[in-house]
Design a protein around this nucleic acid. Structure first.
Lengths: 126, 126
DNA sequence: TGTTGTGACTTGTTTTTTGCAAGTGAGAAG
DNA sequence: CTTCTCACTTGCAAAAAACAAGTCACAACA
């Protein structure tokens, strides 16, 4: 299947040389950082991300995983054959987002009532 | 857990008790954190935000300023009469986002070529 | 052999949000 | 008056998100 006329996801240029704007070009939407959060805390399978409390739609999840893979924040690799199944894992580049994730979560804990603290990172074996 | 149908903009409830998800409900889009960045670095006027390099559309800017004000991250106040003109300023709650901003920017500096470092905060005149 | 099931997506359609251009209203300036 | 700026607002087309349903590869029964 051919790639449709630029699913917009290919904002292949940054809006500006600002490191914040450039980062937001990649992860600045409602869902992407939640997928990264799940990856940080040990989830690896499509189904696992889809089952998270926020209820990401499956087409959005598929698109975000592709974007993150293309950008080198995650890797997709088979973990079984027959049927072939893939898992997603953070690269070092992706793991580097954790401090930002934590900072945003800390803000939420401090200023939004009803939020619970994030658990510790699951460095999980592979 | 049912998702109530909501009048668009006012996602008045959090998607989940996760502090990251809740924070993203408020500032998790392409533009909001760039406005906060501008506020952190001394900008206060509608026109100043609009003139930033990324080129935020004026209707989006107006909406984001309202949202931030309603959420208590910024305050709008008159700084001159005749004609009455307003300026926007971060509250303590808004300023608390700076660490997250910096963390995201640091990630950009490290992983996205062509980005320049953020300047220091402008606690500014006025 | 055929039926049912599961995981991981894809496709189609509707709804919402975004982006862009143009317009508005209160003055200020000439 | 006429023109100009600032700070928005409005209208509308285009893009993205949401939702439901479908597909494809295989696995497990019966």
């Amino acid at each position: 299947m051919s790639r449709a006329p630029q699913p917009a996801e290919a904002a292949s240029f940054p809006r500006s040389p600002c490191p914040l704007a450039s980062t937001l070009d990649l992860v600045g939407d409602k869902w992407t950082l939640l997928v990264v959060r799940d990856l940080c805390f040990g989830k690896r399978l499509f189904r696992e991300f889809a089952e998270s409390a926020e209820g990401i739609p499956s087409n959005i999840l598929a698109e975000r995983l592709k974007r993150l893979e293309r950008a080198g924040l995650i890797e997709k690799r088979p973990y079984q054959t027959s049927p072939v199944r893939y898992e997603y894992r953070l690269t070092a580049k992706g793991r580097d987002l954790l401090p930002a994730l934590r900072a945003l979560a800390e803000w939420g804990n401090k200023h939004i009532p009803g939020t619970w603290p994030l658990p510790g990172v699951d460095g999980g074996r592979g």
